[in-house]
């Protein structure tokens, strides 16, 4: 497959260079640790620091959420690979304001190992570190093993809520509590239609038939629940919502926020067609929509497909979700 790149070995460095040049008011690279991206206007004395991170290739995740009111720093990995401990530790030191630091990231074996090593190192420097793993991807493990699930696009809600709490100067206990609550109430299912390719290989990362889709595929192309014939947007949406409703347990009168996320090359036109059905189904169930986001929030390079995320809000989560933020690639409130 074709890409507009230079030497694939330099792609992350070049991407970050272009990003910093595009967003100098929002982002800076740490001296001596170029894979540590910190909010120009975020970390401050007495505030809980929020460090996110993960593999590259999911842009605007995760670095796009670095900014006032959301994450204070992001550690950048290679394509689809967790960052090593060093840049995580450097992020941690840079955003520590004496009130502790929370690591927020999706639950992947590699990320867990690297962030845990970083946490040990940060602790040795007397920074209190808490970790909240996102596990919103219903398709990645059964309900009774929710802690095994992957974190996917639902990160958006979880990061935003925790970032809001930290920006309001809540304590680390409170920030951790709302992050865990947000994660517990966030549910995502995705479908993939066609693969992407890694810059280093330029080969499709999986194969899929012309009339097929993969339900529950992970954001790196990990196999999902099942491979099925491609169906209509409404059918696919209904199938996803069945799974989400089955776990969310939102009664009539409940309030949710919705994220319809492109995995890369699925255009807005399709996402809005899907959102039409989501709104219809929620309305029919008597569930009200507090806010809807539609677009590319957590991608897999140029993979085709999309995910639907619902977060079951309560008053506290609503207030935090509404809290303003100003990030390089995302603004709200």
């Amino acid at each position: 497959t074709k890409k507009l790149i230079n030497n694939a070995d330099n792609i992350i460095a070049e991407m970050l260079d272009g990003m910093i040049k595009a967003h100098p008011k929002h982002l800076r690279q740490l001296d001596g640790s170029p894979r540590s991206i910190v909010a120009v206007d975020g970390p401050r004395e007495g505030k809980v620091g929020i460090v996110v991170g993960g593999g590259s290739g999911h842009e605007p995740s995760f670095v796009g959420y670095v900014g006032k009111g959301l994450a204070d720093a992001c550690a950048i990995g290679n394509v689809f690979a967790s960052p090593p401990p060093d840049p995580i530790v450097e992020c941690t030191k840079a955003v520590s304001g004496g009130a502790g630091v929370i690591y927020l990231y999706g639950n992947y074996a590699g990320d867990v190992m690297n962030f845990d090593m970083a946490a040990e190192m940060a602790t040795m420097e007397d920074i209190e570190v808490r970790t909240v793993l996102s596990t919103d991807d219903i398709a990645s493990a059964p309900f009774d093993q929710k802690e095994k699930r992957r974190g996917v696009a639902g990160n958006f809600f979880i990061f935003k809520i925790a970032g809001g709490a930290a920006d309001k100067m809540w304590s680390i206990d409170e920030c951790e509590r709302v992050a865990r609550k947000a994660n517990a109430r966030t549910f995502t299912v995705g479908v993939a239609l066609s693969p992407c390719s890694l810059p280093q290989t330029l080969r499709h990362n999986f194969e899929i038939g012309a009339g097929e889709m993969e339900i529950g595929m992970g954001i790196h192309g990990e196999p999902g629940i099942s491979r099925e014939p491609l169906r209509s947007a409404d059918d696919v949406t209904d199938g996803i919502l069945e799974r989400i409703f089955g776990e969310m347990n939102a009664p009539e009168g409940a309030k949710v926020a919705v994220l319809v996320n492109s995995l890369g090359s699925t255009p807005l036109m399709e996402l809005y067609v899907i959102n039409r059905r989501i709104a219809e189904r929620l309305g029919r169930n008597g569930i009200s929509v507090h806010e809807t986001w539609v677009g590319t929030y957590c991608s897999s390079l140029e993979m085709a497909g999309m995910s639907i995320t619902l977060i079951h809000l309560d008053d506290e989560l609503t207030e935090l979700l509404d809290h303003p933020c100003d990030c390089a690639m995302f603004r709200a409130g």
């Binding site: 593999g55 990995g77 290679n78 690979a81 967790s82 960052p83 090593p84 401990p85 060093d86 992947y108 074996a109 590699g110 190992m113 690297n114 090593m117």
Partner: peptide
């Protein structure tokens, strides 16, 4: 190895 890689293989 670790600093170049991260991922699962790096820490392992």
């Amino acid at each position: 190895f670790l600093n170049a890689v991260g991922a699962s293989s790096g820490p392992l």
